[in-house]
Design a protein around this nucleic acid. Sequence first.
DNA 1: CTCAACATTGACCATACGGTCAGGAAAAGA
DNA 2: TCTTTTCCTGACCGTATGGTCAATGTTGAG
Lengths: 218, 218
Amino acid sequence: MPDPTSAANPEPPRPQRRNEIRQQNETLILQAAEKVFAEAGFGGATMQLIADVAGLPKANLHYYFATKEDLYRQVVQNIFEIWLHAAETMDNAPGPVEGIGAYIEAKMEISRRHPDGSKVWASEVMHGAPVIQDYLETTLRDWTEGRIAIIHRWIAAGQMAPVDPRHLLYTLWATTQHYADFGHQIETLNGGAPLDEAQWREATASVKSLILRGIGAI
Amino acid sequence: MPDPTSAANPEPPRPQRRNEIRQQNETLILQAAEKVFAEAGFGGATMQLIADVAGLPKANLHYYFATKEDLYRQVVQNIFEIWLHAAETMDNAPGPVEGIGAYIEAKMEISRRHPDGSKVWASEVMHGAPVIQDYLETTLRDWTEGRIAIIHRWIAAGQMAPVDPRHLLYTLWATTQHYADFGHQIETLNGGAPLDEAQWREATASVKSLILRGIGAI
DNA sequence: CTCAACATTGACCATACGGTCAGGAAAAGA
DNA sequence: TCTTTTCCTGACCGTATGGTCAATGTTGAG
């Protein structure tokens, strides 16, 4: 804590440090941007609306992010980070029940906590991944190959049926992300109300049991 | 066939009938629009680009479709028709293996044949279904309730495990549509090439066996 | 206190977009 | 043929958008 002024001032409410200002505003803008991009898509989103949601003048956005595309790129990258982090749950698992089970739970939790991020990601991929194509070809491809190897090991060990690992991964992504990306449709079919705590537990349990049984792990 | 002119003129190449002109151009525009809306989203699509893809002057689009939103609405409705038609495959099936199996096959075929349509639909729902909310609340809800009843009957008859029918339907939609909506990601992970005939068969078989096993139908 | 670096913002600009319209071409009816 | 209806399209318009900039305020090191 390199603060020479005082030790009795842990977090001042208004007179902020320079770095704090920067980080705080960037976060504020990124959150607003994530929401607006999710609701309107890249083309439909406007810098003015993002500024309004963030409660800042439009010109201020351009001070922190040079262009709309720069801002969008940051949003997508942030989502990718969250996404990749959750993917680690599959490692070091003794078998598919623990590994895939934990992965499903982690991804369902992301769908619940970051539905906007998931939508932005989906939209980006749907439109041909114009800004994160390199991620798909490097990080995602490597991660996928690694997980395929793990699944093959589980199959070889007789811990699950000889399912095509690639399509299993697609199914995992599809089912879990569906609860975020098509959340509005699910909400409508749920009588107009978002899934509550218990319903999310049911959804997660449903997906887990269906897939784990589907791959012959239980 | 109310054609008083001649019986030896089944389909003239150039001198077209009025109705033919109208229908032909509308189809042409709708196809171009579906592609552009899928690639750029509603907000990112421009009437000029749709016109270029259709090979018509922009003003001509506005002759057939008053506004961009009208055109978009038509595209979404067309997709919904295809989608609903495929849904019929689940009816009159003796059990889940036939009913759900056929439904998966039909939906995978749609993902393959109409990936753009699927993307437009996904995009529409992701953005809160601004133009097809009423469809979700009427047609889709009714269809869903009907299918839930069928599944409950199969469960009662001991033809499958007591899976939550609602989440099963979500899983069916998610997995099958994923191959269209995230086709670009799948293509990238496939070495940059679209799935070929054999790979589509594998994908379909994979999804079918995983889900049918997952619900205890096989 | 001074001053340089950083932060803020109202006003402004060029462009691109959805949409309009008048006027002409082509087909259908009489 | 003449007339009416439908179809076609270049030119145009108002607006909204992404982005710029100069002027001003704020912070903190020396």
